[in-house]
Each structure stands twice: as structure tokens, then as C-alpha cells.
Design a protein around this nucleic acid. Structure first.
Length: 875
DNA sequence: AAGATCACGC
DNA sequence: GACGTACGTGATCTTC
């Protein structure tokens, strides 16, 4: 399919200029219009993948339209010099991109685009027109889509004939009739005075064109309107003529000349450098051809027909492919293997039945370099093999080098390290409903490429770790943790499904009762789960005051409903309905759905996702099981030991983040508070409100707690104000008083922001990094967010380091002490075990002991433990 | 299929 | 010249 993109150069340059702040490069040249143009181009090339592209510009000051009407565009302000000076740069940019540009004396860009699109349509092209000027929509047709910028530069609305019909009830051609009637102040087209968009559209629905309308003025309703039309007949016709794009101008360029030749990368790089477009330079590192993917270099690999000892070696890169996201159930597709003997693909059915393979897999002397150790270990264990000897994990290493690099798939991870010779999983297997296994030779090659990539990246990534002083973090923390997490996941947590079902029945009948009461109070039935429908009932039918709006309508969130509680009895019922509905759908039904045949849930801890170093948990998420409200907390009764006579044992850190803060800030008062094991919220209340311990009211403590909470999670004054239901100003004052109370904390906050600006990243106690590029942003909100991130990440991340270290020590200790107890879960500051009852006394000693001594800080760590027959009882 | 809204945990 | 406010997972509804 041939595809032509036609861009209205002047219009886009104007849009970009006014949409963006007046950016400067280091030489003081204004670059905002060029930057906007660049963003628009790279987005459009990527999304539309055109075969042909042309940017049209207006030429000179006067056009044929001025012959008709000398005041055409007469009210236009002169182009600001800050913009004019950027046009040569835009031309340079287009040349570097390999994009044809064109202008023609006496005509406007519109006419070039109109004529070009007509010719292209005749030659069977699909055409996309891009402009900031709605006039261009008159060119829309089944073959031509007109994209008009909505706000900014890259947000565009696509106008098709159908879309125009829906929006105005007009055909594309009638846009010019509309203009003829209503005029256009920006182009100084007069139209008919007193007729605006609404009247114009109404009239054109009755008579399709201006001409038709003018010959039937007597049939128009309204005497005044008739008079106006009569009086400005000629002006209407002339206006229409002015608004009409000339689609037959004498072009001196052919469509063939507009073929997209792809960018001259060197030229583009130099230009970006000159203009100071850092983000664009970064992006260029990622893909060589904007909008076009280069084909992969060919590789040579073989499918191992016989799995013999001869395939294996002492050091290999090894990739285990499982198509399903969930490796607890997904089938292994095959293996990629790269070593001194060559590059191989091993079929799953061959390898998994081979003793040579099993021996190699289980031999911890045979070094393996892998991607996602935990996934590989768990999957192989299900086939009766213990994967040993891993000393490099590309996924984990990439995550440590930069946690924002591992959000996507293998290919993107490889790419961030400069290795591009591997397809994305999506390209090979498809996504969503279309995800399936292609022919063997296709996936065999893909899997082999992954093994090759691991081999290619092992040395440079390890070097980078050393460079960052993170090798120890990887070797002593994340990699060993990965093996422990594999055990925890594989072990799973026993679920009492009968208890869950019982609770489900209870919730079901309660929900039904509440539902009936709500319908009765509302006077109608509706979907209570639909915020839209609920909004209509509450705010329109019952006339409750609107407190907050969302993008799409009324907000019905809990904090809004809580404010409405006194206004109507229905609100209380709705809140309760929401609460129970959540428990029912997420925790009862959701949990039952993911219970395996062994009666257990096997979560997956994502170890390479969060930007702070915390773990996350999916399928099911066992890190957000209810606890706050009694009704929900009962869900925990369904989590039980997997063996008769065992119990659930749980230990959690007390205020670990604030202790970390005391340690890294060195604030005397905070350190003292923890050394004396004071209630930290009460202490904060005493400091902030300048009162004695006995004079701290529950409300003061609550507010102090919210401030502590805010410090730990890096929320803004806005966030705190929402939390406490106070104004932003008041929240800001609280924060200031907090900083006055703990002056070293304030100093730490200032220093860490400065450090982040200097280095571009912040670090945790164990040298985990988080890069924060937005810290230098000129955008206030982005920068503020970045600053809070800089302040918060070392706190939360160090706390994550501590519990991870504790888990490693704990696993070792359990082994040393020959205990049967098993670690099951980690919930950020809490470790959960199952153990024989007779081990409880030992655990009560050693678990807190290990956790408290995971890392030595200048304040003591504190751990609380509990146990019982279910997770609920371990409180 | 993707986005928005809401709610749960830390 | 608007931005959008701790993070993460998941359910449901709605729109494309």
C-alpha cells in the first residue's frame, strides 16, 4: 500500500511555536518550533509508516487569493522574529530526515496539499494530511484522512468524512460553504455578519451549498436572517471562494519525488547536537531509522537433534523460553544455548527427557548466564530439574543498572545495552488473543538469538556493574534473593477454599440486601459499579452537591462519598456496597480463580519492576490482602499452613523507613526517638505542635502520622492536604514545621536533591540506583515530582535493601538451624512463614534476630512477631 | 484492546 | 500554557 503524508509546514511550525515555551539551545537560538516539529515528525513517521511524505510551505506574501480580496489575511500579525529565525532550521531538519519540502509562488501550502492529495488519490495512494488548520478538513475523503492538532503538537484528531458527519452533520466539501457563511477572523474572511457556526451548519443541513441557499433565501426561516443573506450575498460567495482550496494548481513536482528516503542519521545527529535536543539524541541511540525498523542481522545456529554431553560446556548462556507469562503453569517451549561449541536451539521435549541435559542443568560447577533466573528455575523445577550454577542474570543486572530499563521485554532490555539483534516477543508470538506459537524455525531462531544476546551482553553489563560499584549488590543480594524467591513461589501458600466460598456466600447475600436498599432509595435500578450511572443517580437524580469532577464526569471516589454521607442515607450504603464488592470480586472470586490443583496459590514476585527496589506480586497479588477493616481482614483466615500441626508465623519491621531516614539524615531528635523506642507519631506531634507527650491529642497524633507517612512515601503538600482533608497551604505549613522539628532531615532533603541534579541519580544504602532525569526539567510539576522521588527513593529503597538482606540471612539461618519452617511471603516490611508448632519458640527468637541485624544502622531496628493457625491470627 | 475509575496494601 | 501529583495490582465499566 502506497501511503502519502502531506504536512502543512507553516501551520505546524506556528502550532509548535505557540504550544511550547520559548526554548533556547546553548547558543541562544530559539528552538521550540523546531523541537515541536521534530516531535511531530518522529511520531508521525513511527505511527503512519508512510512510503511518501512532503512538507508544503507558503511562498511569499501574496497569493492568487489577494487578487480576489486584497485584505485576505489582512489582520494577521507579523510572524514573530523568534519564529521566523527557526524556519531555516526546520528546512535543515527536513533535509536531514530525508523528507521532501515544497513551496510555490503565488500559492499557499493548502493548495499544494489539495492538489497533491487529489493526484495521489487518483494514483491509489492512501493519504494523510497534517495541519493545525481545520480548513483542511475539506480534503477528507474515503482515501484521505485529515489530522488536526488538538492541543500541543503531537495530540491530533483524525477527521474522516464519517467523523465530520458526526461532528457537524456536514460532508467535507461543505466545510467551505460553512466558512463562506461564518467567515474566518484569522484569515480575515468576512462571511455573512451575524452568522456563526451554529447557524451556518443549520442552514447547510437545509441547503447543501451556499449557492443553493442563496437561490432559496425566501425559504429560510427568520426574517432577519433572510435580510442578512440578501445583503451579503456577494460577500458570502467570495468568502466561499477564498476558503476553497485550489486542487488544480500547476505543481512543478511529482508524487514520485516525495518518496520517503529515510533519514541521514549522521546529519540528523549533528543537527540535534547543534540544537541541543538531548531527548532526541537519546532516542536515536535506540532506533536508527525513525519510523522504520532495520531487519535483524542473520545468525547461524543449529537445532540440536541429539542432546548429548558434547553440546554443553563449563560456561554457557542459557535461555529458557516459556510462552505463557505465568511460569508456574506455562509450558517450556525450548531452550537457547550458546557456548564455545556454538549456538543451539534445544526442543523442550528433547532436552527435558535427556539425562545429559539434566546433568548439565543441575551441575553447579557449570556456569550459566541467564535472563530471569527465577523464571527459569521455577519452570525447570516443575520438570524435575534443579537449575544450578547461575552467576549472571541479564534481567536482574539490567534492573540494577537502571530500574527503568526492565519494564518491557527481553528485546528492549537488550536494546538499552546496545544489542539489537533480537526481535520483540510480540513480533514473534503476537499479543493478546492473537498470541500463538509460530513455526518451529521461527521461534527456534528467536530463542537462539536470546541466548546469543545474553552471551554478548554478559561482559559489558558486568563491567557496568563494577563501574557502578554494584557488583556486590548483584552477587550478594539480588541473585541469591532470586533463588530464595523461586523457592517461596514454588512452595506456594495453602488456601482454605471452603472458607473463602463460605465468606463468598455471606458477602453475596449481604451485597444483595444492600443493592435492594440502594435501588429503593434511588427509586430505580442501575449499575452501582458504574461510576457514570452512579454519578447520574447521585448528582442529577438525587441532586447531591458535586464535590469533584473527573475527566469523564462526576467523581464518585470514597473521599467524595464520605463528604456526602450526611447529605443522604444512600451514600453510606454505596460505600459499604463498594467495600464488599471489592472483597467479593478481587479477594474471593479473584483468589479462587488462581488456586492451583495443589490447593495453593503460587504468586510471582516481580524482582525487576519497581523503581525503588521493592518487590511486587501478581497472580495473585499477596501484598495487598485486606487488613485495615475487620470485614476484609477476615480474608486472611483463608490463608493457612500447608501441613497438619503447623502455624503461620509473621514478623514485621516497625517504622523501618523512618528509622532509615533517621540513619541517613543523622537527625539527632529522630535518632534519639528511636533509641528510646518512642511512639514516633506521638514524638512527631510533640515536636510539630510543641506540646508535652501527655498533651498530644489523638487528632494531633493522626496529623503527625500523616506527615510521617508523607515523608516516607514522598507525597506532596497536595497529597498531604488530600490525606488530611485540609488546604494545601495548611499542609505546606505542617511540612515546614516538620522540617523545623527535624532540621537534619531538611538538610538531607536539600542535599539529596542537589546530588540528584549533579549525578542524575540517587542511591540506597546498598548502592541501588534510580535515575531521575526530570530533576532538571523546566516543567514545575515534573521537576517537583522528581525532587520528591529523589528524597523518597533512598528511604524506601534502603528499606527494601534491608528486608531483602534479611530474607537471604533468614534462608541461611533456617537451613543452619535445620528448621522445617518455610518462608512464604514478603510484604515490603513483613516476612511470613509457615512452621511446625514446635518450632515457634525458636522462630520467635531467630526471625527478629535476623531481621534486626540485617543491616547495622545508627538506630536500632525493631521487629514485632505473631503467629496463629491462619494468617488472620498472626497479628 | 485500551483507558478511566476505583480500591486494596505498604 | 497546561501540567497532575507515593507505588503497584486488579476488577469493572466504557469507549475506540
Amino acid at each position: 500500500m502506497k501511503k502519502l503524508i502531506l504536512i502543512d509546514g507553516n501551520s505546524i511550525a506556528y502550532r509548535a511555536f505557540f504550544a511550547l515555551p520559548l526554548l533556547n539551545n546553548d547558543k541562544g537560538i530559539h528552538t521550540n518550533a523546531v523541537y515541536g516539529f521534530t516531535m511531530m515528525l518522529s511520531k508521525i513517521l513511527e505511527e503512519e509508516k508512510p512510503t511518501h511524505i512532503l512538507v508544503a510551505f507558503d511562498a511569499g506574501k501574496t497569493t492568487f487569493r489577494h487578487e480576489t480580496y486584497s485584505e485576505y489575511k489582512g489582520t494577521r500579525q507579523k510572524t514573530p522574529p523568534e519564529l521566523s529565525e527557526q524556519f531555516p532550521l526546520i528546512r535543515e531538519l527536513l533535509d536531514a530526515f530525508g523528507i521532501e519540502r515544497y513551496e510555490l509562488e503565488n500559492y499557499e501550502a493548502d493548495d499544494i496539499i489539495g492538489t497533491m492529495s487529489k493526484l495521489a488519490e487518483e494514483e491509489g495512494f492512501e493519504v494523510t494530511v497534517i495541519s493545525g488548520d481545520k480548513d483542511l478538513t475539506q480534503l477528507a475523503s474515503p482515501k484521505t484522512t485529515v489530522m488536526i492538532t488538538r492541543k500541543g503538537i503531537t495530540d491530533m484528531e483524525a477527521y474522516t468524512p464519517k467523523h465530520l458527519q458526526e461532528k457537524y452533520g456536514l460532508a467535507p466539501k461543505q466545510i467551505i460553504d460553512m466558512k463562506g457563511l461564518m467567515g474566518d477572523t484569522s484569515d480575515n474572511i468576512p462571511g455573512v455578519p451575524g452568522i456563526g457556526e451554529k447557524t451556518a451548519v443549520k442552514l447547510l443541513k437545509q441547503f447543501p451549498t451556499v449557492e443553493e441557499l442563496l437561490s432559496h433565501i425566501d425559504e429560510v426561516s427568520g426574517k432577519k436572517l433572510q435580510e442578512k443573506l440578501e445583503a451579503y450575498k456577494d460577500q458570502a460567495l467570495m468568502s466561499k471562494q477564498l476558503a476553497t482550496i485550489n486542487r488544480n494548481i500547476p505543481l512543478t513536482i511529482s508524487i514520485g519525488q516525495a518518496e520517503y528516503k529515510h533519514a541521514d542519521m549522521e546529519k540528523l545527529r549533528r543537527l540535534y547536537q547543534e540544537l541541543g535536543f538531548k531527548s532526541m539524541l537519546e532516542k536515536m541511540g535506540e532506533d536508527d531509522q525513525p519510523g522504520e525498523k532495520a531487519a535483524l542481522e542473520s545468525i547461524s545456529f543449529s537445532i540440536a537433534e541429539d542432546i548429548t554431553d558434547g553440546l554443553f560446556a563449563d560456561i554457557s548462556s542459557f535461555y529458557v523460553e516459556i510462552l505463557d507469562e505465568n511460569y508456574h503453569t506455562g509450558e517450556i517451549i525450548g531452550f537457547g544455548l550458546k557456548n564455545k561449541n556454538g549456538l543451539f536451539f534445544l526442543r523442550a521435549e528433547d532436552a527435558l527427557h535427556s539425562t545429559a541435559f539434566k546433568q548439565w542443568v543441575e551441575d553447579d560447577e557449570k556456569i550459566k548466564h541467564v535472563y530471569d533466573a527465577k523464571r527459569s528455575i521455577v519452570a525447570l523445577r516443575r520438570y524435575g530439574m534443579e537449575l544450578r550454577g547461575i552467576d549472571f542474570d541479564l534481567l536482574l543486572v539490567s534492573y540494577l543498572l537502571n530500574p527503568s530499563d526492565t519494564v518491557e521485554d527481553f528485546a528492549s532490555v537488550a536494546k538499552t545495552h546496545g544489542y539489537e539483534n533480537v526481535e520483540t516477543d510480540e513480533a514473534v508470538y503476537g499479543k493478546g488473543a492473537k498470541r500463538r506459537l509460530p513455526e518451529e524455525n521461527v521461534y527456534a531462531e528467536h530463542i537462539a538469538r536470546k541466548a546469543e544476546a545474553i552471551a554478548a551482553l554478559e561482559t559489558p553489563c558486568t563491567d557496568a556493574l563494577k563501574e557502578n560499584e554494584q557488583l556486590e549488590l548483584f552477587e550478594q543480594l539480588e541473585l541469591p534473593l532470586s533463588l530464595i524467591l523461586a523457592d517461596m513461589e514454588y512452595t506456594g501458600v495453602k488456601v482454605d477454599t471452603n472458607r473463602l466460598k463460605e465468606m463468598g456466600e455471606e458477602f453475596k447475600s449481604k451485597l444483595h440486601e444492600i443493592e435492594q436498599r440502594i435501588y429503593e432509595m434511588a427509586g430505580t435500578t442501575f449499575n452501582i459499579n458504574s461510576p457514570k450511572q452512579l454519578g447520574i443517580i447521585l448528582f442529577e437524580k438525587l441532586g447531591l452537591p458535586v464535590i469533584k469532577k473527573t475527566k469523564t464526569g462526576y467523581s464518585t471516589s470514597a473521599d467524595v462519598l464520605e463528604k456526602l454521607e450526611p447529605a443522604h442515607d444512600i451514600v453510606k450504603e454505596i460505600l459499604h456496597y463498594r467495600q464488599l464488592g471489592k472483597l467479593q470480586s478481587t479477594y474471593i472470586e479473584g483468589l479462587l480463580k488462581v488456586v492451583h490443583e495443589d490447593g495453593k496459590v503460587h504468586t510471582r514476585f516481580n524482582q525487576a519492576l519497581t523503581q525503588t527496589g521493592r518487590l511486587s506480586s501478581t497472580d495473585p497479588n499477596l501484598q495487598n490482602i485486606p487488613i485495615r477493616l475487620e470485614e476484609g481482614r477476615k480474608i486472611r483466615q483463608a490463608f493457612v499452613p500447608s501441613e497438619e500441626g503447623w502455624v503461620i508465623f509473621s514478623s514485621d519491621y516497625s517504622q523501618v523507613e523512618l528509622r532509615v531516614l533517621a540513619h541517613i539524615s543523622g537527625d539527632e531528635k529522630l535518632i534519639e526517638a528511636f533509641q528510646e523506642d518512642m511512639d514516633i507519631h506521638t514524638k512527631t506531634a510533640m515536636e510539630v505542635f510543641h506540646v508535652k507527650a501527655e498533651d498530644v491529642t489523638p487528632n494531633m497524633r493522626r496529623q503527625a502520622k500523616a506527615v510521617n507517612f508523607g515523608i516516607v512515601y514522598g507525597i506532596s503538600d497536595y497529597g498531604l492536604s488530600q490525606n488530611l482533608g485540609i488546604t494545601r497551604k495548611e499542609a505546606g505549613e505542617f511540612i515546614n514545621r516538620y522540617f523545623k522539628s527535624y532540621p537534619r532531615v531538611k538538610e538531607y532533603m536539600d542535599e539529596i536533591v542537589t546530588e540528584a541534579k549533579q549525578k542524575g541519580y540517587v542511591s540506597t544504602l546498598l548502592k541501588r540506583r534510580r535515575y531521575i532525569p526530570e530533576i532538571t526539567s523546566r516543567n514545575f510539576n515534573l521537576r517537583s515530582f522528581a525532587e520528591r522521588t529523589a528524597m523518597n527513593t533512598p528511604i524506601q529503597g534502603s528499606a527494601a535493601d534491608i528486608i531483602k538482606k534479611a530474607m537471604i540471612d533468614m534462608a541461611k539461618r533456617l537451613k543452619e538451624e535445620n528448621l522445617k519452617a518455610r518462608m512464604l511471603l514478603q510484604v515490603h516490611d513483613e516476612l511470613i512463614f509457615e512452621a511446625p508448632e514446635e518450632e515457634i519458640e525458636v522462630l520467635k527468637k531467630i526471625v527478629p534476630d535476623v531481621m534486626v541485624h540485617a543491616l547495622e544502622l545508627s538506630v536500632p531496628l525493631k521487629v514485632d512477631s505473631a503467629y496463629g493457625p491462619t494468617w488472620f491470627d498472626a497479628k
